[in-house]
Amino acid sequence: MGNKAEINPKKELSTGLETVAGDRKKTEALLTVEDLSLSFTQYASGLRQTELKVISNLSIQAYKGEILAIVGSSGSGKSLLAHAILGILPLNAKLDGKMEYDGKKLTQERKKEMRGKEIALIPQAITYLDPLMKISNQVIGSVEKEKESIMKKLQREVFQRYGLKPEVERMLPHELSGGMTRRVLVSTAVISSSKLIIADEPTPGLDDKTLNETLSYFKDMADKGCAVILITHDIEAALKISHKIAVFYAGTVLEVANVEDFKNNGENLRHPYTRALWNALPQNKFQAIKGHQPMQDEVIDGCIFYDRCSKKKAICSRGIPQLKQVNGGVVRCNNAS
């Protein structure tokens, strides 16, 4: 009974999404994540074992030539989603759910093969560079001897494209400026000729000029046919370049909206939280939403947004709302229609 009820809407969902994508490009999703859950086994003081659920029932899809922004507040587990897709989670992590890449199941073995070749990560900070290794070696990565000279040429081209001077090659990470770091990190993905690019918080602390420059790199990649997943807490930056916005809240995606839906008072948006986010922006109503996200160790039966929702009904406190396809997007809310 329960199983059947869960499977059906998903079938609808995937066909639904294809038609949405069909408007833009007649392709299948490059990456499909369905019902992903992630938890960690941890020891608390006195060695009591606890389970920490970081991501639950998360579903997203990334298409070639498109930028999907995953927007949520800092520290809500968005980076772990990137790590889950790449298969670089720590050993005490437990992963559930389905992932498909290019129509085939994405197993841990396949992730190992794919990463760095098909799927690239653009990390968020300078700490992701080896402090003792020259920049050129890090951008090129680990390659066989005979490929080294080709890669070296490629790296020089990429550096030229991004306006990085030749002496940057020989620098160590601590010698880079903020803007240079950003461009070096982007270079590592570009040089790999990956099809799926996951950028994890690439914009914090950047001035307007560097921010726009960085965003243009992602736009560029999407225009060349890559699928780009942009993980960020900055909804404004995301709206500038993305095609779709996935709203991440307390470990799950509440809504995937098209960028065009973000206008006026947000009446086209499907989830109250997305609307609240939109209205919280300074150029809109500048209204902050009350309350805070539930803690990761809180057990919530029902809609995860229940406590803060202004339109909650009795049914919302019982069972997680099903993912629904509404008006060219998807949403997890009982009220949306």
């Binding site: 941890q42 020891y43 608390a44 003081s45 006195g46 060695l47 005490n92």
Partner: peptide, 10 residues
């Protein structure tokens, strides 16, 4: 030490 600082226990 493990009891006092559970991080080591991992």
């Amino acid at each position: 030490g493990k009891l006092i600082n559970p991080k080591i226990a991992h």
